[in-house]
């Protein structure tokens, strides 16, 4: 079953008089439970694709089906709901809220989902345990190492049990040891049945995935390679 399916996906940016075609028609699909890496040099359009897949942005043309729902024509309000319900984001720069402690950061998606404080805490503690940070819940992100911060971000991404986990250069800001740990966690999540989509420009990192989709100049180079 395809959890992600795109049909002739395009994205144009209007830069005054010039229109930049960031994505020029992408057709690909990702199956449920797959671990896929999206690779490409900078400026290839992989970030744009990531934003569209993560429902932060909408395509100019074409269709995007996420978990059997055509979300490409959704309104902002509906996209927010989709993000909360189906997507877990992991960023290169972690993007944790510095003035909230680890627990509160992980609780954030649950809060917007409308869960009670008690339930939020219970679920967030479980997830933090599963990424090995059960003893760091009261710390502020500033008091943690890069690897630990990224694990908090992973906990936040999976706390809502999303349909897909989207990671944007998740190891880009980490040393190779910590980066390896993070990839190990992705492997575990994958083996537990999660769908993981990882954007990277690092071939060594990308090779940890089941399949690599390479993008160049807004087009897929080898969408079917495994």
């Amino acid at each position: 079953m395809d959890i992600i399916k795109t049909i002739s996906l395009t994205k144009d940016y209007n830069m005054g008089k010039v229109t930049v075609n960031a994505l020029k028609g992408l057709d690909f699909s990702i199956k449920k439970g797959e671990f896929v890496a999206i690779m490409g040099p900078s400026g290839s359009g992989k970030s744009t694709l990531m934003h569209i897949l993560g429902c932060l942005d909408t395509p100019t043309n074409g269709e995007y089906h996420l978990d059997d729902t055509q979300v490409s024509k959704f309104k902002k309000r509906e996209l927010a709901a989709i993000r909360n319900d189906k997507i877990g984001f992991i960023f290169q720069t972690f993007n944790l809220l510095p003035h909230l402690n680890v627990l509160k950061n992980v609780e954030l998606p649950l809060m917007y989902a409308g869960l009670s404080a008690r339930k939020r805490k219970k679920i967030a503690l479980e997830v933090l345990d599963s990424v090995g940070l059960g003893d760091r819940t009261k710390h502020k992100p500033g008091e943690l190492s890069g690897g630990q911060r990224q694990r908090v971000a992973i906990a936040r991404a999976i706390v809502n049990n999303p349909a897909i986990i989207l990671a944007d250069e998740p190891t880009g800001n980490l040393d190779s040891q910590s980066g390896g740990d993070i990839l190990e966690i992705f492997n575990t999540l994958h083996s537990q049945g999660h769908t993981v989509v990882m954007v990277t420009h690092d071939r060594l990192v990308a090779e940890k995935a089941d399949r690599i989709i390479t993008i160049k100049d807004g087009l897929i180079e080898n969408g079917t390679l495994t």
């Binding site: 927010a80 993000r83 984001f89 993007n95 998606p109 917007y112 989902a113």
Partner: peptide
């Protein structure tokens, strides 16, 4: 601004 972006990315609506 970035915090707002993060909140939006984890499912906060504009109204939130």
């Amino acid at each position: 601004t970035r915090e707002i972006g993060v909140r939006l990315s984890v499912g906060a609506r504009r109204f939130d």
